[in-house]
Design a protein around this nucleic acid. Structure first.
Length: 212
DNA sequence: ATCCCGAGGG
DNA sequence: CCCTCTGGAT
């Protein structure tokens, strides 16, 4: 069976297992909120981000409000996500850039998004894909990367290289679905520590089953 | 001890 | 390429 064929079978099986899996586990009500939440999510759990963003957005609901917010107050609110000294600067600066350089609107291209403080191309892809429904790449977070490697769909280490491998295997129409379903699987079953292979619906397609 | 939807800077 | 940032969960 070719890699392409195997990848499709994996997607079909996961689609049945997780019919309601969301595109992102970050909570947001508009593109600006998702952008800020995604910056905060660097090297942290979505749970910790979701614990602070409602408070943050109630206090500072617009890009202008966040751009003008006292840094110390931002730090205090986002403290639980860790590395808050930097992230407070990043989100305040990003808010300022949106106000001053983008007319108060979240940009809708990777190039302009990635110009924002704390926003890489990957983060830009998350925002485009989840908030705006635009797919210019495959979002390879640590969950997607780990599961992809265990499934033998990529031997690469770096997320950017894994993404390149996947783009060659998957038709563009399935990119969104891939990130969504492997993210769900990585979080619920194919976890970093003690993966639950007994409960895995694609173990028959996985060369790592029972070996991790 | 290790991991979590990493990014900036040296 | 390497280091640093940092709290919370397991």
């Amino acid at each position: 069976m070719s890699q392409e064929e195997r990848a499709i079978r994996i997607l079909d099986a996961l689609g049945e297992a997780y019919p309601d899996a969301p595109q992102t586990y970050l909570r947001f009500e508009n593109p600006f909120q998702l952008l800020i939440a995604t910056i905060l999510s660097a090297h942290t759990t979505d749970k910790s981000v979701n614990s602070v963003t409602p408070i943050l957005f109630e206090r500072f609901s617009t890009p202008k409000a966040l751009a003008d917010a006292p840094l110390d107050e931002i730090k205090e609110i986002i403290r639980p996500v860790g590395t808050f000294n930097r992230k407070a600067v990043y989100i305040k600066e990003t808010a300022r850039q949106i106000v001053e350089e983008f007319g108060g609107e979240v940009p809708d291209s990777i190039e302009r998004l990635a110009r924002l403080k704390g926003v890489s191309r990957k983060t830009a892809n998350v925002v485009l894909s989840s908030a705006l429904g635009i797919d210019e790449g495959i979002v390879v977070d640590t969950h997607v990367a780990r599961v992809t490697r265990r499934l033998g769909l990529s031997e690469s280490e770096k997320p950017a290289d894994i993404e390149r491998d996947l783009i060659e295997i998957l038709p563009r129409k399935r990119w969104r679905e891939y990130a969504r379903l492997l993210g769900a699987h990585g979080r619920q079953v194919c976890t970093a520590r003690k993966p639950r292979c007994d409960d895995c619906v694609i173990r028959h397609l996985c060369p790592s089953a029972g070996k991790v």
